[in-house]
Simulated scan of single mutants.
Amino acid sequence: MKLKFLLTVLLAVMTTACSASSNTAQVNNTKKHYGIAGPKLEHKGAAKSSNTYVVNGRKYTTQTSRNAKNYSKEGKASYYHNKFHGRRTASGEKYSNQQYTAAHKTLPLGSYALVTNLRNNKKVIVRINDRGPFSKTRIMDLSHAAANELGLIRAGVGNVRVEALHVDRSGQISGAGASTLVKNARTDEARDRIK
């Protein structure tokens, strides 16, 4: 019985360490190439059709990957409370406050966005994995890790610019945020990925 318990604890510790190591590797990827923390930028498929959904009596229509490419908007962003850690997102995956993810009303699930804090010019790249925020005053809800990277934790809400990033099948990056990545590119490999 004790051996089984010890093996269970050991497995849990190893899983946590591997997860943290994987997250660090992904952050180092974008940090190394662009000086901006975020998830590994890889092709996740394309949203070829729009969907309409209703929340609190209000109708929202999602964007296709093609239409979302040039999305750029300024507005207020907040972040998920810790109580949401582990809950399912609209994409079906569990929300993790340690990943660089965000909720947006219409950008395609699985797509990426470059988010800039307009007060301090700090930037982060997020992957859209949830829908929301369903508030007229906010355009995005960020994970705790993304909000921390932007310096929004203390204020709770901040003015941001959200610019879409699109990664095609060959790994090329385009979209409204691509010009910012070009300016921040630290390696030839990073520059070569941007259309």
Rank of each mutant, 00 (worst) to 15 (best):
K4E: 14
Q63M: 15
R119F: 05
K73C: 04
S111D: 04
K40Q: 14
V167A: 08
A176W: 08
A146T: 07
K83M: 10
T15P: 00
H33P: 05
Y71P: 09
A102C: 11
L142K: 05
I128N: 03
K83P: 01
T106F: 02
K44E: 13
N184F: 04
V124C: 06
D168P: 05
A146K: 05
T137R: 11
S65E: 10
K2A: 13
I173W: 04
K94D: 04
L150C: 05
K123H: 07
R127N: 08
K44T: 14
F84N: 06
Y53Q: 12
N28P: 02
G92A: 09
A190F: 08
L165F: 01
H85R: 07
M1R: 12
E42R: 14
A68R: 02
A20C: 12
Y112F: 13
K32V: 03
A178P: 06
V55W: 10
A46Y: 12
L152A: 08
A25F: 11
K123R: 12
Q172F: 10
A103V: 02
S111A: 03
Y100P: 01
R127G: 05
K83Y: 11
K76E: 08
T15F: 10
N28E: 14
V126W: 06
K183T: 10
K123S: 07
N148G: 07
R193Q: 10
S111W: 03
Y95M: 02
S49W: 09
Y80P: 07
R193H: 10
S19L: 14
G35C: 01
K136I: 04
V162F: 06
N29F: 15
K2G: 15
G151Q: 05
P133C: 06
G45F: 12
T62A: 11
M14T: 15
S135V: 04
I36P: 00
H85E: 11
Y79W: 14
H43Y: 15
A17W: 13
T89N: 06
E42S: 15
A176F: 08
S96D: 11
E93A: 09
N23T: 13
T106H: 05
N51H: 14
T24I: 13
N51P: 02
N56K: 14
L181K: 09
